[in-house]
Design a protein around this nucleic acid. Sequence first.
DNA 1: AGCATTACCCGCACGC
DNA 2: TGCGTGCGGGTAATGC
Length: 278
Amino acid sequence: MPELPEVETIARTLRPALLGAEISEAEIRWARTIAHPSLGEFQERIRGQSIQEVDRRGKFLSVRLSDGYLFIHLRMSGDLVLQEASSPPGKHERLRWRLRRAQAGPAEGQALVFSDPRKFGRVWLTEDPAQVVGDLGPEPLSEAFTVAWLYEQLRRHRRLLKPLLLDQTFLAGLGNIYTDEALYLARLHPATPSHTVTREQAERLHAAIQTVLQEGIRSNGASIDWVYRGGEFQNHFRVYGRTGQPCPTCGALVVKLRLGQRGTHFCSTCQPLREYAD
DNA sequence: AGCATTACCCGCACGC
DNA sequence: TGCGTGCGGGTAATGC
């Protein structure tokens, strides 16, 4: 369920309990969860490492360890929660890290549990972050993401806006929900060819991307389908998942089409394919 | 050659 | 019961 705001929320929630804790053991229940290195090496190398930092890069949760980095990608249905180390494994539990502290602290007797019904989520352990996140585009909430950069990049590519914004090597962190929401706020049709975007449109898109991501973070992310994690941004969707319901701006019905294999929601009145000067 | 696009795939749960 | 759908992205094939 995680896009940038959801992963950000998870990182913020877990950070206090994880910082300073030591990973005493990794218990792997679904082997393919480990993307790198091999199973045995993963278990061997993570044992005894302490957690120095809990952060996010794009949709990856990044955990800096005393020796290396742990990257976790939740893909479609993954979730991370702290549980009692002695708790029985849930139906979809894939990986469990037992935690330990030198002195009694928030993580005492706890375990970090990765559950994932669809088994798409993956975990990496590496000394070189670039090996995992090296190809990601800029962070949309960082200073590197400027109107000038976005405008230039949109003009240089020749792709439809929606698939381009979903491309993590273009920009890191946007997923299907926030892309639809951002294009709506920017009043841009999802199938607009990127190189036809004007400077003014790029300005709107830049602002819209930052707005929807900040809204999502402020709402602690979105909880949709059968995965509920406390976020409530799903109650503020303007177009995503609102096919056939009125557009909040003009009242026309939200329509849905398929773009780049993804369901795409928008208002054909507010987001015309071409913008006519009048 | 080098992009970009498309199709397909991967487990599972859910709604209709 | 069966079928379509999906908060993601990797790969392979195809198109420009």
